[in-house]
Design a protein around this nucleic acid. Structure first.
Lengths: 226, 226
DNA sequence: TTTGTTTAAAAGTATTACTATCAAGAATAG
DNA sequence: CTATTCTTGATAGTAATACTTTTAAACAAA
């Protein structure tokens, strides 16, 4: 019996859920590939349609523009990471073990055998590292936030901050620390590759291990505050 | 005698230095205002020209596109903050005092009497908070980095990491901590305003004081690591 | 006075970001 | 099994964007 994971992004994130149709799933799969290759700026629905052997107008039936598609993908990503965190945290008995496991999931948000056939989690992880911050750095943030488009990110952040408070109930900055962990988990691999002067971890082999170590160092020392 | 501060961005950051001409200075002044009002996506050279009562083609003589203009402004910003940090650090006798002063400059990068008449530092600070990360989240990062377009940011980061090592010579992540301070200094005011669930500081009156306090808390605890 | 530089104005091109229409095929309901 | 609805691909069209080019006037420098 194969257990299928299905992430359910809020309906406002698309005109209709692309996961429901063959074309929709191919849009997701191919847009991740193209976003990785071209970057958000050079990515267009026209190029995506060409790659799909489909028509521009067909894509517009799923997403009203490329920003909405990006929001969908980013939101999918955070729901996915949330799922991984939940699974990793499940067995652990102490709060410290749970936080440690959560950090491990954050720094390695993909699995050997992809569970969702039309999403390459490894590639999506790259895309979110490269383009993710553009999802909320826009003039429409407040509107989009009111529509609940950032709930995935916020609810994971909130869950991590609960873990933090379990370890140290009087820690004054649980949300900031949680967010900080996410930001570091994405920024430092990017810096290591492109702007190495800005970090101390090194591009190459086991970057996710040194990243995990660094995040744990942060948590461990900040939670020792008296 | 009036002492004039003049920031000198690398020549590669513009086709010709806008600070040299009246039109150039008006381009800087007005583009900051428009970027703040419209955001990078809706900002165009056409609108800027209209606002200036000038022609689109005239602006293209200074900057080859809006991304280059953004890079120029961001670079100018970091050189400016570097200047403030240098000044703040100057009198202090201990490394801890110097770091504390640097953090203060980071969280309040403007002065009562603007020293550069054609740049509103307060507004530029806002623009860099909102749009700054787009300067390096692009497919051309590596090229642009090789051309030295991010030297302003990197050299300030390097200076702060030296301060960190003066306090604790065996601290394993001086660059990451320095970068982290910059990122937090920009992200958390943004979060406080738009995505308050992601932070613990509050939008309003003395946000820069609570921000300074939080950054110091970070530094102080991380540097206590044994 | 001549020369060079800088600008505003206008016009033109290629691409982007959509919107609308239509016909064929697939799925679905009665 | 037929009528209807839904979905897609194809085509065309529009407005805005991101430039580039040319020209002529203003001005500054030699």
């Amino acid at each position: 019996m194969a257990i299928q994971v299905r992430i359910l992004p809020a309906p406002q994130l698309s005109l209709r859920d692309p996961q429901d149709t063959e074309l929709g799933r191919r849009i997701l799969q191919t847009s991740i590939k193209l976003l990785d290759q071209l970057g958000l700026e050079a990515f267009t629905f026209k190029k995506l349609a060409a790659e799909l052997g489909s028509a521009e107008a067909s894509i517009y039936r799923y997403f009203s523009n490329k920003h909405q598609l990006l929001l969908y993908l980013v939101s999918w990503y955070w729901d996915w990471v949330h799922h991984l965190v939940n699974r990793a945290v499940a067995g652990k008995s102490t709060a410290a073990e749970r936080l440690r496991a959560a950090i491990k999931s954050l720094t390695k948000p993909f699995v050997a055998n992809p569970e969702v056939p039309y999403i390459d989690e490894r590639l999506l992880h790259q895309v979110v590292i490269n383009e993710g911050s553009k999802a909320y750095h826009t003039k429409a943030v407040d509107q989009e936030n009111n529509k609940g488009l950032f709930l995935g990110y916020k609810s994971l952040s909130s869950e991590i901050s609960v873990l933090i408070l379990e370890i140290k109930p009087d820690f004054p900055y649980p949300h900031a620390l949680a967010t900080n962990l996410f930001e570091m988990a994405h920024n430092h691999p990017y810096f290591a590759e492109h702007l190495p002067k800005l970090t101390d971890i090194h591009h190459g082999e086991d970057i996710s291990n040194s990243l995990e170590e660094m995040l744990w160092f942060w948590v461990d020392n900040l939670l020792q505050a008296k």
